[in-house]
Measured scan of single mutants.
Amino acid sequence: QIFVKTLTGKTITLEVEPSDTIENVKAKIQDKEGIPPDQQRLIFAGKQLEDGRTLSDYNIQKESTLHLVL
């Protein structure tokens, strides 16, 4: 699982696999929060994550925290 922290300070927990794409993660966030993926920007280690890449591409491991910017 990974954590996604929103600007409001809320933390969302997501069940993911390293092979999941960023697009996939955004879809999971939409399921939980109702935020359309095209409004979501995910930041990890100061980098904006691209939809077509996977979590493992960015070396995002379990218990990692991503930041969600709208």
Results as ranks from 00 to 15, higher is better:
Y58R: 01
L70A: 10
E15R: 06
I12D: 00
S56C: 07
V16I: 09
N59D: 09
L42V: 04
K32Y: 08
E33K: 05
I29S: 01
I29L: 07
E23T: 09
I12S: 02
K62M: 15
I29W: 00
D20G: 03
K62W: 13
A45V: 07
A45C: 14
H67V: 12
K5C: 15
R41Q: 13
E17A: 09
V25M: 05
D38I: 11
K26W: 03
D57F: 13
V4E: 01
T6M: 14
D31N: 10
V16P: 01
I2E: 01
E15Y: 12
H67N: 09
I60G: 01
P18S: 10
P18M: 13
Q48N: 12
D38F: 12
I2Y: 05
K47I: 14
G34W: 03
S56N: 09
F44Y: 13
P36N: 07
L42C: 01
L66K: 01
K26M: 06
T21R: 08
K10C: 14
I2P: 00
L55K: 00
Q48W: 14
K47H: 13
A45P: 02
I60Y: 02
E33M: 13
I22A: 02
P37S: 14
F3Q: 05
N59S: 07
D51C: 06
D51N: 13
S64Q: 09
P37I: 14
T21P: 05
V16Y: 15
Q30T: 10
L55D: 00
V69Q: 09
V69F: 13
K10W: 09
L14W: 01
A45M: 14
L55N: 00
P36C: 09
Q30N: 09
T13Q: 08
I35Y: 14
G52H: 14
L66C: 01
N59P: 03
G52Q: 11
L7H: 15
L68D: 00
K62Q: 14
D51G: 07
N59I: 04
L68G: 01
T8H: 14
F3S: 05
Q39M: 13
K5H: 11
K47G: 06
K28T: 03
L66H: 02
I22Y: 01
E15P: 06
A45E: 15
Y58I: 03
S19K: 07
F3R: 07
Q30K: 11
Q61G: 12
I29F: 03
T11V: 15
Q30M: 12
N59V: 04
T54S: 08
N24Q: 15
T8K: 11
T65E: 08
E23A: 15
T65G: 03
D20E: 09
S64G: 06
E50A: 08
N24A: 14
V16Q: 02
N24L: 15
T13Y: 08
I12T: 03
L42N: 00
D20N: 07
L55Q: 00
Q48V: 15
V69M: 13
T11W: 08
T54C: 08
L55S: 01
Q61C: 08
T21K: 09
